[in-house]
Design a protein around this nucleic acid. Structure first.
Length: 381
DNA sequence: GATCCACGGGAATACACGGATG
DNA sequence: CATCCGTGTATTCCCGTGGATC
């Protein structure tokens, strides 16, 4: 966004008296194109990738940090920038950095394990970064796609660095699986494993991210509010309160900010009040999962989640919840039940044991491990 | 026609508990 | 007393089908 655009948004915000200037910039599911407050981490990542600058491939690297510590934010930003410089997408963009460069082509491929879960999807995602031809979505075999990837990488002076993000979450592409899929081109590819922990029996270099410190969280929140909200829409004290509450978890801080802003906006108030902040912090579970985990689900699961939120005031057995959801949707209770168990396996829901009501096995209930208000708002888009 | 894979439903299995059995 | 059994529930698992795309 250039300066004119910023000013225009600010102006329209004042004219319309609107609180939300840029909803997307406030979204906890969207990474900033340039991470705030992670300069030293970026440097350490570049250190680990140093051989690239000499036209070599570095050894496999792990990037690990606790939830909300910015691992994804750092890697997505870094890979986008590096791919601009070292990749060769075939696009005719004559940036100065590009024309100065000589030497081998190195693509920086970012794979989001939450959305890329099958071999077919993996090859497809990799190819779309590496090649500028359009990659079919179906109607073509997985072997065919692998063949295209291999032939592209086997050419001299062509190689790739593949980041596999969220490799240690349930049902995502595991790191070992990616290694298998890359087996036939392993000499031309190196990997970056991004997650909350290193892959099993890891003995390569690791870039460890610490949780954000308080003032860093304040900077992140201030950056988002200055662009996303009308001027003066939030007190600096409120930002500090959010940062304190989030205890280093940037996702939780941003989610609560987003919820508070949404509440104030819906109430047609020009600024975020104390009550909005309180409600927001209560709505975002501190030990929950990233909101993007819910957003990466298929639409029918999201629908079931929405129904669950509207149905379950107090914790009821899964069987009853499923029956109520059945009446609002087109699927049977049996299918809803299975979805709810699956969502619990994905850690999106938490199973809560209930007291036995009679004979038979003890029922359990499910509760969201994400912010309901943020989910409703983000899914509606 | 080929291919991927999301969908959906119900079958199969696991568990809890009380009561019968050895 | 220890174990088995039957019944009722909860949970997991499997697999055929069809939409979308090429």
């Amino acid at each position: 966004m250039d300066l004119h655009e910023r000013i225009a948004r600010r102006q329209s915000a004042h004219n319309g008296g609107r609180l939300l200037v840029d909803r997307e910039y406030l979204s906890p599911a969207v990474h900033a194109s340039e991470p705030v407050g992670r300069g030293s981490v970026l440097e350490r990542c570049l250190d680990a990738l140093e051989p690239v600058f000499d036209g070599e491939l570095p050894p496999p690297i792990a990037v690990a940090g606790p939830p909300g510590s910015g691992t994804s934010a750092v890697v997505t930003a870094l890979f986008a920038a590096l791919n601009e410089i070292f990749g060769d997408s075939g696009r005719v963009i004559g940036t100065s950095t590009r024309t100065d460069r000589s030497g081998p082509t190195t693509w920086f491929v970012y794979i989001d394990g939450r959305r890329v879960k099958t071999p077919f999807a993996f090859y497809r995602a990799a190819l779309s970064t590496i090649s500028d031809e359009t990659v079919p979505e179906s109607g073509i075999g997985t072997d065919e796609l692998r063949g295209r990837l291999v032939s592209r990488l086997e050419r001299p002076n062509h190689r790739a660095i593949v980041a596999i993000d969220h490799h240690d979450e349930p049902e995502t592409l595991a790191y070992e699986r990616v290694l298998e899929l890359l087996g036939s081109v392993e000499d031309d590819v190196t990997t970056v494993a991004v997650g909350t922990s290193e892959p099993g029996d890891w003995n390569g270099p690791t870039v460890d991210l610490p949780a954000y410190r308080r003032h860093e969280l304040v900077d992140i929140l201030a950056d988002r509010t200055s662009t996303g909200l009308a001027a003066g829409a939030i007190e600096h004290d409120s930002i500090r309160a959010l940062a304190d509450w989030a205890e280093g978890n940037a996702h939780n801080a941003l989610a609560a900010l987003y919820v508070a802003a949404s509440l104030a906006n819906e109430a047609n108030e020009g600024r975020i009040g104390e009550d909005h902040l309180e409600t927001a912090m209560a709505d975002v579970p501190k030990t929950g999962v990233h909101i993007d985990r819910t957003l990466s689900l298929s639409s029918n699961r999201q629908k079931v989640l929405l129904d669950l939120l509207s149905v379950s005031e107090n914790s009821k057995p899964i069987r009853e919840v499923a029956r109520e959801i059945e009446s609002e949707s087109s699927v049977t209770a049996s299918t809803v039940t299975r979805f709810l168990y699956e969502l619990a396996d994905l850690e999106v829901l938490e199973r809560v044991g209930l007291d036995s009501t009679g004979s038979g096995r003890r029922p359990s209930s499910v509760e969201p491990r994400f912010s309901p208000i943020a989910f409703r708002s983000l899914v509606a888009e």
